[in-house]
């Protein structure tokens, strides 16, 4: 069979595509769910934070602002010494600066920071992209369970799988 000229074949491709449904997702009306691992927004679990400043120090563009103070907490055991704990006064992330690299989440030794795939937090004013610790805490609701891993992955001790 003789090959069709390329000009005609091209017309066929566009015509076929026209007759197939479009792939557009009508964004505000319908939404795609981003994958669970998507780095959308950082959520803060305040009670886990010990104000160690590791995240703020390892941030490549210094967009995390932390202030805290020392406080005394009642002793764990009866008759023990009162414990010294660190309390968080301020924990701000400036999403106008953030590069979404995720280093802060990784370095956190006490699991106080989590990624959430939520992405709808654009603002009219750039100053409002600075999320304070209440707003960061609100994102905790949207943090998904970590995914099960692909076959052949090394199962860490204590991890459920």
């Amino acid at each position: 069979m003789a090959e069709l000229p390329g000009l005609i074949k091209g017309l066929g491709v566009t015509l076929r595509t026209m007759l197939r449904p479009a792939v557009t997702v009508q964004y505000p009306h319908e939404k795609e769910t981003p994958p669970t691992r998507s780095r959308g927004v950082i959520a803060l679990k305040e009670e886990n934070c010990t104000v160690c400043m590791l995240c703020a120090r390892s941030c490549p563009d210094w967009c995390i602002y932390i202030e805290g103070h020392k406080d005394k907490a009642p002793p764990r055991r009866e008759g023990g010494k009162p414990r010294t704990i660190q309390l968080l006064d301020r924990f701000d992330i400036d999403y106008g600066l953030c590069m979404y690299c995720g280093i802060c989440v990784e370095v956190c030794p006490f699991d106080a920071l989590f990624w959430s795939p939520e992405y709808e937090y654009s603002e009219v004013s750039i100053a409002e992209l600075l999320h304070d610790k209440e707003r960061l805490g609100d994102w905790m609701k949207t943090v998904p369970e970590p995914l099960a891993l692909e076959a052949g992955a090394e199962v860490k001790k204590g991890a459920k799988n």
Binding site: T17, M18, A22, V23
Partner: peptide
């Protein structure tokens, strides 16, 4: 419309 659908999009909606 036709161009959009040929490019598998919807065009203005």
């Amino acid at each position: 419309k036709m161009m959009s659908h040929m490019q598998s999009r919807l065009g203005p909606m």
